[in-house]
Simulated assay, not measured.
Amino acid sequence: MSGTAPIKPLRLVAVAGGTHGNEMSGVTLVKHWLRDSTELLRDTFTAVPLLANPKATEKCVRYNEMDLNRCFTRDILFSSGSQDEPYEVKRAREINRVFGPRGSMNAYDMILDLHNTTSNMGICLIISEAHKPLEMHVCHYIQTHLPNFNPRIYVYMEHGSELYDLASVGKAGIGFELGPQPQGVVRGDLLQSMKTLVKVTLDFINQFNQGMEFPAFEADVYQRVGHVEFPLSSDGEVSAVVHPSLQDQDFSLLRPGDPMFLSLDDKIIPYAGDKPIYPVFINEAAYYEKNIAFIVVEKIQLSVPALSSTSQKVAS
């Protein structure tokens, strides 16, 4: 990337929580902001809070019938509905109507989606693709203004895959993934960190709208390239668990020969690849239903162009 990326000021911003109903930092904050949105007020815009999956939130479960954060594919959003389709499919179309439609001029300028993970991901900033200057500048602004958070940038789309998450309804979208936090539990430290992430992001948007220019920079991102499944027995049951030396080591290199799994009869199963990998979302509780032990990412460095608004100032 080179040159300067001019982008229109952002006027429509949403902050979503409860996309997964048992990830409680986002649920708690959005419910608070629905009662009092003062913290979301800025001079040049106001962010709108969204409780994404009310049914799942009420039950304190990840989803009611299917994962809402996998329902924003083109096939689902732009196909005709039926009476017997899952609640989350109907809800995805409703969110797309109100905050999109995706790809249209009427879509919200940015959607922030608040998540928690049981994995030791720390403060993680999730984007769909790394070539989008606005999202990358938001992430870089967070990294430079909150260095003690050590926030990492995770690109979730693999080569050839399609958009499927709630944040993709907007013209731009970022997910905040904070952990470790058990499902159905609020940790005060992560709640405060998430609130700070939202504040700093809204501050960035406000400064951008007022005409501030942001210089080019280099950034490391972690690009998803695949996943590793748990070993299974002949009857389809998990036969080994994440090795204790790998547990909680998200974003650390796993080298060939390093312990990866520990079988139920206490045999070490090493990583047998031919090059080091970065595991993330290690032992994520929500991925057990998919038999995913961890996601594999590669670390790449990007050059991101300078960013400027097409308007020097937006009237308040």
Rank of each mutant, 00 (worst) to 15 (best):
I76M: 10
I95D: 08
A172N: 15
E65I: 01
R35D: 15
S234A: 14
K8H: 11
P276S: 07
A16L: 08
S193H: 13
T144E: 15
E85N: 11
H32I: 11
L191A: 00
Q301W: 02
F204V: 08
K275R: 14
S308N: 11
V296C: 04
N69F: 00
V297K: 00
E177C: 04
F261V: 01
T19R: 03
G17F: 04
L163N: 13
P86M: 05
F281T: 08
G3Y: 13
F281I: 10
E284I: 00
N206G: 08
S80N: 14
G18V: 10
F294A: 01
A14H: 00
V225T: 14
V297G: 02
R70E: 03
D235T: 13
L232R: 00
F99K: 07
H20R: 12
A14Y: 03
K195C: 12
V89R: 14
F99Q: 07
L191C: 05
K275L: 10
L307R: 03
A285I: 09
I95L: 15
D189W: 09
E218Y: 12
L264F: 10
M194S: 08
Q143G: 13
E85D: 12
F45C: 08
H20W: 06
A92E: 03
S104N: 02
T28N: 10
I174G: 01
P270F: 10
A286T: 12
D274P: 07
G173Q: 01
C71P: 08
Q83K: 14
R255I: 11
V169T: 12
G175Q: 01
G211D: 03
R187F: 11
G81H: 07
D67M: 08
V98A: 12
E213P: 04
A56T: 02
P259Y: 01
V15W: 11
L254P: 01
V138L: 08
V48E: 14
F214E: 10
A130V: 02
I142E: 05
K195N: 15
V228D: 05
E39K: 13
S119V: 07
W33I: 11
Q247F: 11
Q223E: 12
A130M: 06
F99C: 09
H115D: 04
R93I: 11
P259N: 05
M260E: 12
G179C: 04
Y63W: 13
K171S: 08
M66Y: 08
K90R: 13
R102Y: 03
A285F: 09
S233C: 07
L166D: 05
H131C: 09
H32Q: 15
E39C: 12
